[in-house]
Amino acid sequence: MKDLQTEPTLSIRNLTVDIPTRHGILRPVDQVSYDIQPGEILGVVGESGAGKSMAGNAVIGLLNRPAHIAGGEIWLGGTRIDALKGDAMRRLRGKKIGMVFQDPLTSLNPLLQIGDQLVETMTAHLDISMSEARKRAIQALEEVGIPAAAARIDSYPHEFSGGMRQRVVIALALCAEPSLVIADEPTTALDVSVQAQIIALLKRLCRERGTAVMLITHDMGVIAETADRVAVMYAGRLAEIGPVRDVLTAPHHPYTRGLMGATPLASQGKARLHQIPGAMPRLDALPDGCAFHPRCDCVQGKCRQNPAPDLAADAGRSACWYPVGALV
């Protein structure tokens, strides 16, 4: 038995997701390994098609068929959950893992009052009565900063603004006190000022409760301010992982460096942005060797033939044969 102090909340080992199609098997997530400690916020960044949401959906058992977990293990607080069947997974989902999606309007039931949705979630997962659940629902709404919670608990989702809806979704995700929250682009649909409110809320609640957070986003600024560690994904594989300050200020993987260069920065002024030539390869046409090599500006012979080195969960920072700044 490992020490409880160091037991990660979530531990993913060599996770691989396959989608069988008529034209062969696509692999949107390929040999991904990472841990999230209790109370830690892990940022998962990458561009569209990098597999960041797929990995999140695999953890919570929401892969749409025919996508399925083809290999690897997912451990949640000492329990293996990747092979759980429907009912067992459903009990876990919501109770142990909370989920916040991008669009709050589609993750709330438009026909149910928000109070009913909160009460339903709580009575399903916690052993409490309806009236107790309602009391707690009001508390939960107050905690996420909804004014006059007792009066607004009987409102329908359409009566709230976008930011308020996302607060309700966060209340829903946290009401059964899960140990892990997966937030998939939680602020992408929101305005800058509302985004700041939601991020501050998510940070505060998770710190208070020691909840681990997987924050999936494409916004490097949000990651910089929110995450403790960051995992950069490219074409289904983990390109780089490490403490957020190290990865963003001194990236090892050429892709991370390219991403940072492509983001307009205050200090840069009007200088041209660094371009990564080309676009992310399609899953059915992944190049041989390292998937990034056709776009990489420090590609060498080895990169064209050998797949990028595996990135073990506890060793190394970048999956690159010739990491930037490291000794060659």
Binding site: V192, Q195, A196, G221, A224, E225, L248, M260, L265, A266
Partner: peptide, 9 residues
Amino acid sequence: AAAPKMDGF
């Protein structure tokens, strides 16, 4: 002030 900063660790 609300906009996320790349160096706002």
